[in-house]
Design a protein around this nucleic acid. Sequence first.
RNA 1: UGGGGCGUCGUCAAGCGGUAAGACACAGGGUUUUGAUCCCUGCAUCCAGAGGUUCGAAUCCUCUCGCCCCAGCCA
Length: 556
Amino acid sequence: METENNKGHFIESIIRDDIANNKNKGKITTRFPPEPNGYLHIGHAKSICLNFNMAGKFNGKCNLRFDDSNPAKEKQVYIDSIQSTVNWLGFEFGSPYYASDYFDRLYTFALELIKKDKAYVCSLTPDEIREYRGTLTEPGKNSPFRDRTVEENLDLFSRMKAGEFEEGLHTLRAKIDMASPNINLRDPIIYRVKKASHPRTGNKWCIYPMYDFTHSLSDALEGITHSLCSLEFEDHRPLYDWILDVLDTPCHPQQIEFARLNINYTVLSKRKLQRLVEEGHVDGWDDPRLPTLEGIRRRGYTPESIRKFCELIGVSRKESRVDMGLLESCLRDDLNERAPRVMAVLRPLKIIIENYPEGMTETLEAANHPQKEEMGKRPITFSREIYIEQDDFMEDPPKKFFRLGPGREVRLRYAYLVTCKEVVKDENGNVTELICTYDPATKGGNTPDGRKVKGTLHWVNANDCLDAAVRLYDRLFKDENPEQDKQDFIENLNPASLEELKDCKLEKSLEQVLPEKVYQFERMGYFCLDSKDSTPDHPVFNRTVTLKDTWAKLSG
RNA sequence: UGGGGCGUCGUCAAGCGGUAAGACACAGGGUUUUGAUCCCUGCAUCCAGAGGUUCGAAUCCUCUCGCCCCAGCCA
């Protein structure tokens, strides 16, 4: 799949060089460090693939580590969901790691910092801290508590840990430089009091380490060699390095930043996704319209297609917005290979074949995949009454329309050639039924006389089919970039992102299928059983993705 | 008008001083019992702009322009 001399993206180049120079003894260890405060989305998939693939490619290891240092936002459900999602994507991580498992060691590191006079307990209020921090263009000023003695700091910090102080009264701050042009270096807070119960450590702690402190040290403790993160952490790298330089740590991982993923016609920020769910614009975190991995999975996306997508988009430092069409293309590519073909009529129009014997039923053979004989064949039944797609008939068709019309002949896939003899309408002039004739010589859809038929339609036997509901999904937003400032992205929601068809007729073989198994409804797209709302009595199918549709493009 | 980044085809993205890969999209054509798949073909004389260095620059230098990130006791 990849050429031998392909050097890969810039991170891969760095890793190759490091291995060539025997840095870290030639070992590679990466990590995927989600905070368990939400569900994973396709943007996380990029990071997951990057980290696991780099480790895999160079005989290394990738840790799944929960960055759980803020109990106010984190929950066990997210921890569970994240693990199963990473596994579903196809990556093995053994047992997960938790930053919370390092709380004791992190506390000891904080003590070390204090003893080295590189940290102090600050008793400014939150407002004062902000004030003292300065602005983007003005330097900050030193906290009046900056010169507390080591003893005093040790005492105060241990009392913070003991729970003697309420939230907001004291913080532990790194003593760096209040005049630094990099705001992250203006004595960043590294510990705060938070009297919250933690999903894993319960009430053991009432002080919790901040991200920069936790992350750099967790990386070092795990022997991470390459700490890959997104661009917005670039400004944090000096702090990451400062912490690891000042403290006596097992190693000093290299932080490398890359651009996070953006995709058009959707949003990929936890906050925005959360709003969509909480305000009820979608039906939960696993709504098939959402770019969450649980949503995408329910929709019918395969892990393989997501991994392929992540490979194709590349890794760079340029902020970009990838075309949703590429994701869909990866999906179709994969589904085209593995999805069995089947026939289903979504908007039924009844056809009566007047010269076909009443009460007769024939069993015909249909291929499960036109290009893959090994996928076998299945029986389908045919009778006097069948359904075809409403869109496959036009009373007054344009010349380029080669489906059914009055007097026209088409092929019913795997069955017979039929000709439309009569159009039956109701009192409002709506077409309700078609009377056709069939040519017995064309069984199987063959034309022994060699005559050409342009159109081949899918159909379902009216006397031997399954009733089902089918959900047609479209993009969630109308605009390519729903996050444009000025307007609220909610206003950009596509009102037609979900259309539910309730009177669909499916071929009988679909009777006992499992969710996540995707089928191609020939000429209609790829579909799978919904994992949540489907019941044996009332099956519900989701449209995973449409087929490429040249005709739709031509006909507007 | 503080600091840190980024600007190569419509969208991603290779390229690392030797004369613009690839993918998606798009446009033509062929095959086809899915207007699907598959198969051909085309698609940046040009790399944000302007100067400069060089035999030679998207690649080096200078300046200009544009966009993104940072002032949570979030990560």
